[in-house]
Design a protein around this nucleic acid. Structure first.
Lengths: 332, 332
DNA sequence: GTGAAAGCGCTAACAA
DNA sequence: TTGTTAGCGCTTTCAC
């Protein structure tokens, strides 16, 4: 088991070039030798070593999806889209998890330098423009999913619009004291959504109330987690009067928040963000992001560009949809 | 950006051997040359190519975690454990997603043959003994997580015991018509849990009722999904009399099932399986599996064995814990 | 402390 | 149709 091309060649009584040819589906092999080699290879469980192939070909046939902390349901949907797109090709998908213990940009630089893949999908990696500039200097094929940089391919959803839609929904239904459960201060999507929320209130002639913008623990997953939602809601409920409605930055936060309300026998109208699969089953109203679609389309663009020298940049922005279920209404 | 060792050597006025030495932290470099090389490398954004290193060293410094369909919350917890263990080393973690469109054993054979990694973690890959035998012939370092094979390292939780505990809990609380929401027929963990459930009923002097063992859609993720729970519960509620309590095979199923009950204004006692993070926030009683722990311990064993020629096999079995929250009681 | 050179397992001309 | 051979970008003896 696990031999080299030389072992197969010897065993089959041919040269290594021939073995290589049959594995690369070259037409220039007689079907007789082809059969022989294939049999020997199968018997010995031989597969060409990826690394040696990669070196020799200067092409690895792998796409790497880079994601931060795999524990977020958002990525899963994106990854499903990616996987499905890749399945239709002869590329392999490797996933690389960016750790929270080190600056993302440093991890990316190291990773890109190592040249493991032909193309990279950066999913929910949020960097500043100057950082992305650094990264793009590696001149590797890449597409950003859920972030944007003017000189790169990207597929993004408009965070501001998402928050606006949710906030406006409540305003239109007569609510005034609308709270926002937010995430880590430095998180870029969180900041944009906060802006959208504030602008919408302002547009409506209201003055945003800082005490209604809250978060709890934001260490873990930038605050896009259950605990944050739970703690934030507790803070909100300490205020008198209570807020009249709540906008969240993730479905998971909303679940935590709902839990906190239940403990006090309350159920304020609430809207989540993402539309993860189980949202439907708990009746959670939410801002739907086209996660699967972004993954799939982004991957197709990447695959398309690999090999081309000067591919044209493709950039796309989605607007999230408000999905109304039961939690957004007064009596849920 | 992205050069070879030759570019760095030329630029720094040294040989490639020296460049290699500084990147491999060899002590045999004067600190002066070391500095010089480091500066040039940094300036040019150089990192040794992983593939070339892998070839030359016959050691890749990557661990590959192989998981089926990334969309399962169970893996996420395991992957967190794996990531944390790897973070403490200078290994890289690559994740490989087994597709549902092809027999897992074939995908593994192809993958192992390509020798991308120094060691493999197979998470929730369920194969028959003869299939695992095939796989172990590749003589690569590996540990199975959430499956078992006598000749391999494995970390597993006892599925039968998990189902027994849940079933027994209801029996001890006076329930008799206990339903089981199951998963795909061929799923090995599902089969074991079903056995545990049936045996417990039998031990208690009851005759298991086949009509109380149900599932809905099992195409997707082997039935460990929301929809299956939802559909299964609908089937159960069509029966008269209704079951008195319900045991599930995943928390996600339980969420679907609860949703189906709510639609009919019912709330039968129910117990999930896994203890995913949000279970706590929806008050879901469940069988807790030590997912993070299995990931971390399994990875440490693997890392420990890499490089050794005849490492001793380590096998460990956990017993899941029953976590009581609100859904398991009569009036939840 | 440093360099020359062989070799890791492949691919891809180039010859035959 | 097949074999020979020169790389791919590194690491690692072995000299010096």
């Amino acid at each position: 088991m696990s031999n080299t091309i030389y072992d197969i060649a010897r065993q089959a009584g041919v040269s290594i070039a021939t073995v290589s040819r049959v594995f690369n589906e070259s037409p220039n092999v007689s079907s007789k030798t082809r059969k022989k080699v294939q049999n020997v290879a199968k018997e010995m469980g031989y597969q060409p070593q990826g690394m040696a192939q990669g070196l020799a070909r200067r092409k690895k046939n792998v796409i790497m999806a880079v994601v931060p902390l795999l524990s977020n349901y958002f990525f899963l949907q994106v990854l499903n889209g990616i996987q499905d797109a890749i399945s239709e090709t002869n590329f392999e998908l490797h996933i690389y998890n960016v750790k929270s213990s080190e600056k993302p940009v440093d991890q990316l630089k190291r990773l890109l330098g190592r040249r493991w893949a032909d193309g990279y999908l950066f999913v929910s990696i949020h960097l500043s423009d100057s950082e992305w500039k650094m990264i793009s200097q590696f001149d590797q094929q890449m597409v950003l999913i859920d972030d944007a940089y003017s000189a790169c391919n990207y597929f993004q959803v408009n965070n501001k619009q998402g928050a606006r839609k949710a906030t406006r929904y409540f305003l239109e239904h007569g609510f005034k004291r609308i709270a926002l459960i937010t995430a880590k201060e430095e998180s870029i999507p969180a900041a944009k959504r906060r802006q959208g929320y504030i602008q919408t209130l302002t547009d409506w002639g209201l003055t945003p109330d800082e005490s209604l913008i809250v978060s709890g623990d934001t260490q873990y997953r930038d605050g896009f987690n259950e605990e944050n939602g739970y703690e934030a809601m507790q803070k909100l409920l300490e205020q008198t009067p209570n807020p009249e409605a709540v906008v969240c930055m993730s479905d998971i936060q909303a679940i935590g928040a709902i839990s906190a309300m239940k403990e006090q026998n309350l159920s304020l109208p609430i809207i989540g963000y993402d539309d993860i699969q189980l949202a439907k089953y708990i009746g959670l109203s939410t801002m739907r992001q086209p996660m699967y679609k972004m993954g799939k389309e982004g991957t197709n663009v990447l695959l398309d560009q690999i090999g081309k020298d000067q591919p044209k940049v493709v950039q796309k922005e989605y607007i999230p949809d408000l999905i109304l279920r039961s939690t957004s209404s007064q009596q849920n």
